[in-house]
Computed example of a mutant assay.
Amino acid sequence: MNKKLVGALIGLTVLGVSSAASAHVDLAIGVGIPAPVYVAPQPVYVAPPAPAYAAPVAVGYYRGDDWREREWRRREWREHEWREHQWRERRWGGYGY
């Protein structure tokens, strides 16, 4: 029985040593030379580019132009009424409707 106990103890010791060996313990010695330090450059302001579109061209209806349209419509209405008047004069001989 003594031999079995000694064999079991040796087996457990081998297992313990193998697990300690797989722990990957490293030993490092530093020399003391500093590593290069990275410093970011100073920010530089760059003006934004000029707009790439042309200036808007004013085309079409303006707020001040509505009087022109009213005058045109009024003139057209007068001409239409005058034509109607002339037609009735020719057709009915001046007696109206």
Rank of each mutant, 00 (worst) to 15 (best):
54 A>K: 11
75 R>K: 14
91 R>W: 15
43 P>H: 04
40 A>N: 08
57 V>N: 01
83 R>P: 04
37 V>Q: 09
95 Y>H: 15
70 R>P: 01
58 A>I: 13
96 G>K: 07
61 Y>E: 13
90 R>Q: 13
72 W>D: 08
94 G>W: 05
46 V>P: 03
86 Q>A: 15
74 R>G: 10
68 R>H: 09
50 A>V: 03
68 R>F: 06
65 D>V: 00
54 A>M: 03
40 A>T: 03
74 R>Q: 12
97 Y>F: 15
69 E>P: 00
88 R>Y: 15
82 W>M: 10
68 R>Q: 12
97 Y>G: 06
77 W>M: 02
67 W>Y: 13
87 W>P: 06
63 R>H: 14
76 E>P: 00
97 Y>D: 04
96 G>R: 06
69 E>N: 06
44 V>F: 03
82 W>F: 12
59 V>K: 10
89 E>A: 12
91 R>L: 14
76 E>D: 07
86 Q>E: 15
72 W>G: 01
63 R>G: 14
94 G>Y: 08
80 H>W: 13
66 D>E: 13
66 D>V: 13
63 R>T: 12
69 E>R: 05
59 V>G: 00
40 A>V: 02
95 Y>S: 14
77 W>I: 00
73 R>S: 09
83 R>G: 02
92 W>T: 07
71 E>C: 06
91 R>H: 04
65 D>C: 02
64 G>C: 05
76 E>K: 02
57 V>P: 00
48 P>T: 02
64 G>E: 11
70 R>D: 09
72 W>Y: 09
77 W>H: 04
52 A>M: 07
45 Y>T: 05
61 Y>G: 03
38 Y>P: 01
77 W>D: 11
56 P>S: 00
76 E>V: 10
69 E>G: 09
